[in-house]
Nucleic acid binder design. Structure first.
Lengths: 265, 265
DNA sequence: CGCTAGGTTGAATACGCTCAAAGATCGTGG
DNA sequence: CCACGATCTTTGAGCGTATTCAACCTAGCG
């Protein structure tokens, strides 16, 4: 198969799977690797919106990849306060560390209708054994998860309500852009209610409402029937002191070089 | 070598290396695995307190394991506000995801004098290839890192200053207890200044001071020359709604079972 | 013994919360 | 297809937690 044919093949598969899209952003995949990833995608499951997918404390016997829709991981305190820890978008694995954790720490719920691929964690290990480069790319994905968590910590710790809001809207925008879920107008589907967003950014939903209004009044965003539009990305970046993380752009590390240096090949 | 001898050997090595101590909390290690881990420990480096170890944006060519001392990862905004993302204690790897990340996202600094073992990320890959069980245990460690980050997010998002402070003091206590760095009196070495702790919990150092005083006035803690004593752990747990995470107790997953199910053995 | 980093305290202010009530939108069943 | 209920959004007003500014105190180290 020529390089051209391979790239075409990659592209076709990209259209089917946001996971493969994500992986191939990190590194050019060969056909064996794509085949291995495709095996996971053999069948998909569709879940309703607003359903709890993983209960806190459950033993998890299976992993999930999101094909379509949004989910989120959260924690609830006894006083009724809820904190959203992170969002899962198409191509994300819920939860990637599940691989080796016997129990889930926090519950995960679907935010929209969710199309997922379910597979046994064992399959990942077998796949990594057969295609070691995929283990490395998976490791990079885990590193990105860690970066996203760190961003959330910084957001909550040192930014004002206004800055926090601008920051997360940019964060979601760039994550969605990477998998082709934004249009040219800096618009994206935004299914988060103001109450949930408030629980994400550690503020009351009343103040969330006022903060979003302030962003609208300043002509920075517009929201129309769950469509979020960033009207002035440069200004938003300045307000939020947003740094488009390398982890959202794609990496240039030559994984083959790392592989060569070990006896994994 | 009899089982008894092996356990003795484990214990001897535990005394030398907090990393091996951490790993063997997750799973009983055999001698080959201990040897592989020991190779990393061949020589140690000592760093001064309050030195930047990793600059944001650096390419990192090496990993570090902390043998002795504390370090922390933080982010600084242009307005001078600083957010501590997490602390690294003996047995922790700085930063574990470094393995595959070309650049560091956030800077890491030593808080105390730091004794570390430095090694090339490649060595980890070679080690995992030779001793696949260690890769799985490493994966569990990464999962624990993720849990700790999630805890920090929940702390900052939904807890009051008073609760946050109680919570992190418990968190550090249990992490240190796991590696034998607390004494029977619920006392531990606490090198964090009030200003740094304030930057960890997203509050001003003035309010940090008042919050610590309130905990002292309520006979919950006492601080004397960098020794932190938790005077009433049960009450602190109630205030903070602290949940001693499974990740801090050790896991019971049978890794051999997972290995058996793949062709990694 | 003096300097510096860290800790303490007071007072004024502000950001964001709570409580409360009304308005808009969406989905569903009649 | 419209009406109804439920969920989500909006707005006002009073309050409280935590911030800022400013000054002073203390301990450790050269």
């Amino acid at each position: 198969m020529s390089l051209e044919e391979q790239e075409l093949s990659n592209e076709l598969l990209d259209n089917r799977s946001p996971l493969i899209k994500r992986f191939s952003h990190l590194h050019q995949l060969n056909n064996n690797e794509i085949d291995a990833l495709n095996k996971i995608h053999e069948q998909t499951t569709v879940l309703d919106a607003n359903e709890i997918i993983l209960h806190k404390g459950d033993f998890h016997k299976e992993c999930m990849i999101i094909i379509r829709g949004w989910a989120y991981r959260s924690s609830m305190l006894s006083n009724g306060k809820r904190q959203v820890i992170n969002y899962y978008l198409p191509g994300d694995i819920i939860s990637p560390f599940a691989l080796l954790q016997p129990k889930t720490d926090y519950s995960v719920a679907s935010l929209t209708i969710l199309e997922t691929c379910v597979f046994k964690p064992d399959y990942l290990l077998q796949m990594f054994s057969a295609e070691p480069r995929l283990a490395l790319i998976y490791g990079q994905m885990l590193g990105r998860e860690d970066s996203l968590s760190a961003e959330q910590i910084v957001r909550l710790g040192v930014r004002s309500a206004y800055e926090r809001t601008a920051h997360i809207l940019l964060d979601l925008y760039y994550r969605l852009k990477l998998i082709g879920l934004t249009d040219g107008e800096e618009t994206y589907f935004f299914p988060i209610t103001q109450e949930l967003l408030a629980d994400t950014l550690g503020m009351s939903f009343v103040h969330m409402n006022r903060t979003l209004h302030k962003l609208r009044d300043n002509n920075l965003i517009s929201i129309d029937s769950k469509q979020m539009t960033l009207l002035n990305i440069d200004e938003l970046i300045k307000i939020a002191e947003y740094q488009p993380s390398y982890s959202q752009i794609g990496l240039n590390t030559d994984i083959n070089e790392i592989i060569e240096s070990t006896n994994l090949h």
